[in-house]
Computed example of a mutant assay.
Amino acid sequence: MHQIGSALSLSILTAVAASVSAGHEATDIAARSGAALTGSAALLALALAATLILIVPVRDIIT
C-alpha cells in the first residue's frame, strides 16, 4: 500500500510541476523527478543506517 501511495503522490507532484513550469520540456520534469527519487532513496538509506547504528545496539543492552 505504501508503494501505491508513493507512486500516486509522485504522479500528482509531476502533474503539478508540469502545469506550473511553462516552457520546460517533459524530459526536464522527468529528470527532476528522477533526481528527487534518488535523493529520497539516499535519505532513506541514511535513516536506516542511523537506526541500525543507534537504536539496535541500545535494544541489545537493555534486554
Rank of each mutant, 00 (worst) to 15 (best):
M1V: 11
H2S: 12
Q3S: 13
Q3C: 03
Q3H: 14
I4C: 02
G5M: 12
G5R: 13
G5T: 07
S6A: 12
S6C: 01
S6Y: 02
L8H: 02
L8Y: 03
S9Q: 11
S9Y: 05
L10A: 15
S11N: 10
S11H: 04
I12P: 00
I12H: 01
L13I: 03
L13P: 01
T14A: 13
A15L: 04
A15N: 05
A15Q: 06
A15Y: 02
A17E: 05
A17W: 01
A18D: 07
A18N: 13
A18T: 14
S19R: 10
S19K: 11
V20N: 08
S21K: 10
S21N: 15
A22V: 12
A22H: 10
H24K: 15
H24D: 11
H24R: 15
E25G: 13
A26M: 09
A26W: 05
A26E: 06
A26K: 12
T27M: 03
D28S: 13
A30F: 10
A30K: 10
A30P: 01
A31D: 08
A31F: 09
A31T: 14
R32L: 04
S33V: 13
G34P: 00
A36I: 14
L37Q: 12
T38L: 12
T38P: 00
G39C: 02
G39K: 12
S40Y: 04
S40K: 08
A41W: 02
A41C: 01
A41T: 11
A42R: 06
L43E: 04
L43F: 07
L44I: 08
L44K: 07
L44F: 04
L44P: 00
A45N: 05
A45C: 04
A45K: 07
L46I: 07
L46P: 00
L46D: 00
A47F: 04
A47P: 00
L48T: 15
L48G: 08
A49E: 04
A50F: 04
A50E: 05
T51W: 10
L52K: 13
L54Q: 12
L54G: 15
I55Y: 07
I55N: 09
I55C: 08
V56I: 15
V56P: 01
V56A: 08
V56E: 08
V56C: 00
P57G: 06
P57V: 10
P57S: 07
P57F: 05
I61S: 05
I61M: 11
I61C: 03
I62D: 02
I62R: 12
I62V: 15
T63Y: 06
